[in-house]
């Protein structure tokens, strides 16, 4: 996977949402997800639902039970990282990684139009989410990045994080 930055996406009262951005691409993965579906007649409403859900969770706290992580997609993968989950509006998925009640990292997503994400139109984003999750989880385990309250910092204490 190419190197990517972890950048702040939006800071609500109870949750700081981060996103990921490839260093050679203009927009973050979550911005790309929004731009792809915001004008869609078919999926625009589901995107609205997901955005509303993000705002609601931002105000309540990222309770573990708000996130569906038993979806077959995740169980099928070798790395059963428990924090990995998805926001879903009907069959539209936005993949994410819940790190704590106050930190969630948003990725990209797409339409799940087959029984599994691997077979769906969103398979690329699904595997990318898996790869992002793996890199971030490894970085946390190695101490390359740390959780400081509701802020992600690198080992030097900087909020500019490139993995």
């Amino acid at each position: 996977m190419n190197s990517f930055a972890i950048t702040e996406f939006y800071n609500f009262d109870k949750v700081r949402f981060y996103t990921v951005q490839f260093t050679d691409i203009e927009f973050s993965e979550t911005d790309r997800f929004i731009k792809r579906f915001e004008s869609s007649d078919k999926y625009g409403e589901f995107l609205s639902d997901i955005l509303s859900l993000i705002a609601q969770i931002g105000e309540r706290g990222a309770q573990d039970y708000y996130f569906n992580r038993n979806e077959n997609d995740f169980q099928a993968l070798p790395n059963k990282e428990k924090a990995r989950a998805a926001f879903q509006g009907e069959n539209l998925r936005l993949y994410c990684l819940r790190l704590s009640n106050s930190i969630v990292v948003l990725f990209n997503g797409g339409v799940k139009d087959a029984p599994t994400a691997q077979e769906s139109t969103c398979s690329i984003q699904f595997y990318e989410a898996f790869a992002f999750t793996k890199r971030i989880s490894e970085a946390l385990r190695e101490g390359t990045i740390e959780i400081n309250g509701n802020i992600l910092v690198d080992y030097k204490g900087s909020t500019d994080i490139i993995l």
């Binding site: 702040e8 996406f9 939006y10 800071n11 996103t19 927009f27 973050s28 979550t30 911005d31 929004i34 731009k35 915001e38 409403e45 995107l47 609205s48 639902d49 955005l51 509303s52 859900l53 993000i54 705002a55 609601q56 969770i57 309540r60 309770q63 039970y65 708000y66």
Partner: peptide, 27 residues
């Protein structure tokens, strides 16, 4: 903060906001 997100969130319909709120209330 993401301007793309802010802009999109401002356009979200009232029923989407209600749906999200009530979904989490129920949870």
């Amino acid at each position: 903060a993401s301007q793309v997100f802010e802009h999109a969130l401002n356009k979200v319909s009232k029923d989407s906001k209600i749906f999200a709120e009530k979904s989490l209330d129920i949870l």
